[in-house]
Amino acid sequence: MPPRNDAALDFLLNRRSRPAKTLTAPGPSRAELLPILTAAARSPDHGKLEPWRFIVLEQGAMPRLAELAERRGRDLAKSDEDVVKGRAQFDQGVLAVAVIEVQKDSPKIPALEQTYSTGAVCLALLNAALASGWGANWLTGWVAHDPVFCTEGLGLVEHERVAGFIHIATETSAPPDRPRPDLDAITRWVSE
């Protein structure tokens, strides 16, 4: 049997995202964030394409993004509830890392595999933040999929899209654990 890393396995078996609305200042400094970003960048990346990049949204950027989210929500005739929700993640945000999928032309690596890699980066970033002692949550919402918000707010270009906003800050309360998937219901064993 190969050597085990019981601490890492225990962390993964018990990890829980923290609701973004329970996160408060301070958030990680740039020096504290760098190892978290480094860990995320070690995600599976077939062909070494790096089909993702990071935009670190510091607290000073949050009011501008909140205003833009509200304006875009009104322009798109979103419900008041959707506008408030779209704005809230930036109004309440301390620090977030926007993980940006950057599709690369490749004769060997399909676009879908690049999307999978970007999702892996989001989860690795979330887990690295939690393992570093911060509260963290992966959010998207309609703002992540609005091309105008992404262009005006984040400077994205046509072949880029937001895979997630990973909010990272100090947690104020740990939520109760939620029911987890029934492994028997979702697992099929094939031996022949």
Rank of each mutant, 00 (worst) to 15 (best):
P175Q: 11
E171A: 15
P147E: 08
A174Q: 11
A174S: 13
F149Q: 08
T151D: 08
H167S: 09
L156S: 06
S173K: 13
C150D: 04
I168H: 05
R178D: 08
A169S: 14
E152R: 14
F165P: 01
F149L: 09
R178S: 13
E152A: 15
S173L: 13
V157G: 02
P147T: 03
V157N: 07
T151C: 09
P175Y: 02
H167I: 03
G164Q: 07
D177T: 13
E171I: 01
H167K: 12
G153A: 06
P175D: 11
H159I: 02
E160S: 05
G155L: 10
R161H: 11
P147V: 07
A169C: 10
G155R: 10
A169R: 08
F165H: 09
G155Q: 10
I168W: 05
R161N: 08
P176G: 11
D146Y: 12
E171Q: 12
F165S: 01
F165I: 10
T170G: 01
E171G: 13
H167T: 10
P179L: 12
V148P: 00
A169V: 11
G155M: 12
F165R: 01
T151R: 15
I168M: 08
L154H: 07
S173T: 13
V157A: 12
V162C: 11
F149H: 03
G153F: 06
T172Q: 15
P147L: 10
R178G: 03
R161Y: 00
P176Y: 00
L154S: 06
T151L: 02
G155S: 13
G153N: 07
H159G: 01
P147C: 10
V157K: 14
H167C: 08
V162E: 00
A174V: 14
E152M: 08
P176W: 01
A174W: 07
E152V: 15
G164I: 05
S173H: 10
E160G: 09
I168S: 07
V148D: 12
G155A: 12
E158R: 15
V148L: 14
D177N: 05
F165T: 04
P179F: 00
P179G: 03
T172G: 15
E160V: 01
F149W: 06
G155V: 11
I166K: 01
H167R: 12
I166E: 02
T172S: 15
H167N: 10
G153V: 06
G153L: 05
A169N: 09
I168Y: 07
P176T: 11
I166S: 01
I166M: 04
T170Y: 03
E152G: 06
D177W: 01
I168N: 11
A174Y: 02
V162L: 07
A163F: 11
G155T: 05
A174C: 02
F165V: 06
I166D: 00
G155N: 09
D146H: 04
F149M: 11
R161K: 15
E160P: 02
F165M: 07
P179C: 01
E160Q: 14
P176Q: 13
L154D: 04
G153R: 02
G164P: 10
P147D: 04
G153H: 07
A174D: 09
E160W: 03
E158L: 09
D146V: 07
I166W: 02
P147Q: 10
A169E: 06
G155Y: 07
G153D: 03
